[in-house]
Structure formats: structure tokens, C-alpha cells
Design a binder for these strands. Structure first.
Lengths: 158, 158
DNA sequence: CCGCAAGTGAAGCCTTGGCAACACTTCTGT
DNA sequence: ACAGAAGTGTTGCCAAGGCTTCACTTGCGG
């Protein structure tokens, strides 16, 4: 019953994608928090633990712990009983994450996914979208947009 | 500096997508193991802990623990020092996961993502693709396929 | 048939990301 | 000015998913 085991090369390549997926996962929450803190600072001028916790749907100790990790990673700073702020690095990450999120949502919508579903699914998917894939998404959207312009604007003008 | 806080409705809806993403994440590893076990059974007639561990890129105790969880969830069965097998439920899940994986990879490729990158990114993304989105992917692929048929076959026939 | 290598299991540890409970600050209204 | 409410921090707990180490079965070769 036992056939030959896969070649060495296969055996080594296979697990890599799982390792990569796991690595992406460990960044995912950090990215979510950074983006959220960026949003809050944009809206209120500061990000408070309670607000972060509420928006992330977790309790405040969980948010505190996450912020600790962000500080350890050099993405955020904070002083006791004061708000949380992003470092330059953190702000840059927030911007990238936000842009990627938009692109993923736009792509899903362009593919034909309902906007609300796109928003929900993008939240989980976005963290696994590599730079290469992101570029492909952008290129596709550009093509799709010009096509829909042709279709939608022609009658309007006519 | 402090503006008004968001409306109640926003405050409640916001966290939902994170909760959903987290729930998907907790299923992700289960799905990966189930699919992998299905693959191994298909190839060798049985799935052994060592092989599962090797393919997943983890040590064997980790695989053992994962299998324990699968058994607890009713997706797999096993006896000490014997292989691991899927229940009907587990086999059904494996099939769904496999099909979804293929669809996601195909979609990425259709969008213009290099095959190898598509494979890597799909591994992480697939677990966050809802049924609605999957349906949209399938519909898009059907359209894209017929279009490329038109483009590719026309010159061939001419 | 018996011993040793490979495979498996079990225990214990780490980190992460949740939680609740409790302690302490800050802020606010009287 | 101060008491209570709201916000924040701390501590300790849990489960999951990693790991290493060690013990035990299995199964195969001599």
C-alpha cells in the first residue's frame, strides 16, 4: 500500500507555504491594531485604550497587551493613563495597511462580491496578500476601471 | 480636541468583522490539517503522524496535538500507533477545502498573479473566503474562461 | 527471536490572544 | 474640594499552537 515518499525537494517546499501563512498570521493582529490606532488618531487626535478595545471587539486588557507588543516592536508609544500614538514606522505601516485594505475590497467588489461581504472577507484576507499579488490586483483594477469607463460613460455622453 | 464618539450602530458593527476574522482563523489550521490528511490518505492509503508533521512543517508532537483537536471536533479518528483517518464529516470538509483552494488559486492566476505566488498567498487567504465570495469567484472564472476562449480559440480556428 | 531504529505518545515549557477581577488614576460634577 | 464615575493598569486564568525532552511501541534486519 505504501508508495514511495515524495522527493526531497517537494518535502521541503511544501511546508514553506504553511510557515509563510503562519508568519503572516502573527503580523495580522499587529497590522489591525496599527491601522485602528491610526484611524482613531485621525478621528479624535488620540487613540485611547478603551476606544481601541471597543473597535477591535475585545476587552481592554487585551488591547493593553496588544499595545505593549506594538511598543515592544517599535510601532507605537504611550505613557500610563495617556493615549497611544504611532511611531513613524507605525504610521507608515498603518498607511500601507489601509491602502492594501482598500485595494483588496475594491478588487473583490470588481470581481462581483457584494460590498458588505467584501468588507468582511477582506479583513481576514488582506494580511495574506503579498506585494506581488497586490500589484496584480492594482493592475487588474486599472484595466477593469478603464473598461467600465468605456461602458458606463459612453451612454452618458451619448 | 475630542470629537463626538461614533454612533452606537457603528460601534457595534465595527468589531464584528474582526470577530469573524478571528473565528475564521481558529478554523484555518483545522482545515489545513484535514485537507493534508485527506491528501495523504489519497496518496498512501493512510496518514501517519510523521508525514502529517513533515508536510505541515511542524514537529510531530504538534501534529499529534492537532490531531487530538480534530478528534475532539469529530473530524478524524485514530488509534494509538496507528494512522489517522477522517470521519465522513472530515472527508467532506477536506473536499470543500480542496475545492475552495483550487478556486482561489485559479482566481488569483486569472487576475494576473504568478502561479507560484498564487499558491503561496492562497494558502493564507482561502480560509477567509466566505461562500458568497467563493460563488463570485466561480462566476468570474466562468466569465473569464469564456472570454479567453473567444480570444485564444478564434486565431486558432482562423 | 531479539535488539535497535524509527515512529508515536506524554509531559512540560513558551508565546499569543482572549477573558474576568481587582487596584489605582483621572476626570467631572456638585 | 472631593466623591463617584470612567478610564487604565495589573494580575492571574484559559486554550491554542509551537517547541524540546523523554518514554514507550512497532516493526524490521540480522
Amino acid at each position: 500500500m505504501q508508495q514511495d515518499r515524495p522527493e526531497e525537494s517537494e518535502a521541503i517546499v511544501e511546508p514553506e507555504r504553511f510557515n509563510q501563512a503562519r508568519a503572516a498570521q502573527s503580523m495580522a493582529i499587529l497590522e489591525d491594531y496599527v491601522e485602528m490606532i491610526g484611524d482613531l488618531i485621525g478621528e479624535f487626535g488620540e487613540a485611547r485604550i478603551t476606544d481601541i478595545a471597543q473597535r477591535m471587539g475585545v476587552t481592554h486588557p487585551t488591547a493593553t497587551k496588544a499595545v505593549s507588543r506594538l511598543k515592544r516592536e517599535g510601532l507605537a508609544i504611550s505613557r500610563p493613563y495617556r493615549g497611544v500614538f504611532l511611531t513613524d514606522e507605525g504610521a507608515a505601516m498603518a498607511e500601507l495597511v489601509r491602502a492594501r485594505h482598500r485595494t483588496v475590497v475594491d478588487l473583490l467588489v470588481a470581481i462581483g462580491v457584494p460590498a458588505e461581504t467584501a468588507e468582511l472577507d477582506a479583513e481576514g484576507m488582506e494580511h495574506h496578500v503579498s506585494d506581488v499579488t497586490l500589484k496584480a490586483f492594482e493592475a487588474f483594477l486599472e484595466r477593469a476601471t478603464s473598461v467600465s469607463d468605456t461602458i458606463e460613460e459612453a451612454p452618458r455622453k451619448g
